[in-house]
């Protein structure tokens, strides 16, 4: 697999956000799918996360203005869902499943290994900004336990050795 790195805009780069014409086109394409503007909120936030790497207060403000919602409404939704990054993420976000099937089939050992190798705990980033470790709930791939999602891609049937190889490869590219 060729997991795509996250390239996150730095905080100072997106204090105020103005959508360019490409973004406007994409937003218009999303809006025509729904009878209300509000329903476009999640898809538009996805577009923004793809574009800017994360959902900054500036992005929330711009989305609110574009959809005719208050910034508080947008922030309320953003904070409800776990997948929108509210701060710049590392290039590779390692989302380790901690739910039952994975926990029972090697997931715990995998987490210990990762914490040791990267020297970080859940919720932390390596100092060079390459990797971030996140404990997540069931990824819907339990037959392949233990499972780790790296950015958009699933890696299944892992053990320390296989995961090390994946990380070495990603590290080499970043």
């Amino acid at each position: 697999m060729s997991t795509r790195p996250v390239v996150a805009a730095r905080p100072e780069e997106i204090t105020t956000v103005t959508f360019d014409s490409t973004m406007e086109e994409r937003i218009a394409d999303v809006l025509r799918r729904y009878p209300t503007k509000r329903a476009a909120l999640l898809p538009v936030l996805w577009l923004c996360q793809e574009r800017y790497g994360w959902i900054s207060p500036g992005v929330m403000q711009a989305v609110a203005e574009r959809l005719g919602e208050s910034p508080a409404f947008v922030e309320g939704a953003v904070s409800f869902y776990t997948m929108y990054y509210t701060e710049p993420p590392a290039r590779y976000v390692l989302q380790v499943c901690t739910t039952l099937s994975c926990a029972m089939c090697g997931g715990r050992e995998l987490v210990e290994h990762l914490k040791g190798r990267l020297g970080i705990g859940f919720g932390e980033k390596t100092p060079d900004g390459s990797f971030q470790l996140v404990g997540v709930q069931c990824l819907g791939a339990c037959g392949g336990a233990p499972v780790v999602q790296i950015n958009d891609d699933y890696y299944e049937n892992l053990d320390a050795g296989r995961l090390d190889k994946v990380l070495d490869e990603l590290k080499g590219r970043s």
């Binding site: 039952l100 099937s101 069931c138 819907g140 791939a141 339990c142």
Partner: peptide, 11 residues
């Protein structure tokens, strides 16, 4: 949505 722990059939 396939989120019930232990379920991976829809995928």
């Amino acid at each position: 949505d396939e989120s019930e722990p232990g379920t991976f059939k829809d995928r």
